[in-house]
Amino acid sequence: MEQAVWLTFLVGVLAATLRVATPLVWASIGEVYTERSGVLNLGIEGIMFLGAFVGFAAAAKASQAGLPGYLWIGLGAAVLAGVIMALLMGLLSVTLGVNQHVSGLGITLLSIALSMFGFRLVFGESKVLPSIEPFGQIAIFGNIPILGPVLNQYLLTYVAFLVLVPLAWWMLYRSSFGLSLRAVGENPEAADAAGVNVYRIRYLALIIGGAFMAIGGAFLSLAQLGAFSPGIIAGRGWVSIALVIFARWDPVRAMWGALLFGAVSALQLRLQTLGFQLPYEAFLALPYLITIFALAIAGRNAPYPGAYLKPYRRE
């Protein structure tokens, strides 16, 4: 009996770990591309927020209009919104070369303000939060005990772990695009001299990153929750920023970091229900504190990309 309880507990934690890690994998892989090109995109929190909102609003409208693929329409709209914000970030940080901390933060503030503005505009001030029928989990492992409950996940979860991460690794270390990307991030002058278009690569990196960040946000509203609320992102973008540094700008390590974060969050949720007497805020703060602690250790002499935060101007 005792054993069965623990097994249920473990299965629940493992399933939740994958679920919690999914948006973080999308966003942090997006940020890896961006930062490897030498641009820090602090717009990540806002772009996730905008992705969650635009994805949800478009899906809700399409669903009202009776369109069958309304969730995919939502996802497409979210990607588009993320790309637009990435282009704006590119205009500021790549073309104009302004301070990346402040411009990124500005992108976040603008994205959140626009989302809230749009939310009021589309859904009014009704007290009942609108909702949609979200993406379901795919029963690949059916009713097989343990495997089923843990690994029957959302499509976006499978894509994140099985496609996004390996692809990012291959792109960065094995493709010529990745070589250019890393060259631009390490030494733009040398890359330029070798015939790489620094501006183009940085814009491409921002666009890929923006799209992934928006999908990470849209995962929450379109798959996990089927709803949108102002607290939906709740710092996940900032956690992703920390994960990227923690992972030393490596996509595979970023995935492990996201899983670690997911496991801590999942454990915390379940320990609460088991009646641990600590305030639940302590558990919620734990991931942030662990991240800061990990930064203090792993971040020491962290291998920042050589041209991190440095705008490039062709003389």
Partner: peptide, 19 residues
Amino acid sequence: LHIDEVVTTLLLNAVALLI
């Protein structure tokens, strides 16, 4: 430790709110 203060000050905002 030469750790970028942007990330740490940012994350501590969330912690302060939780406290």
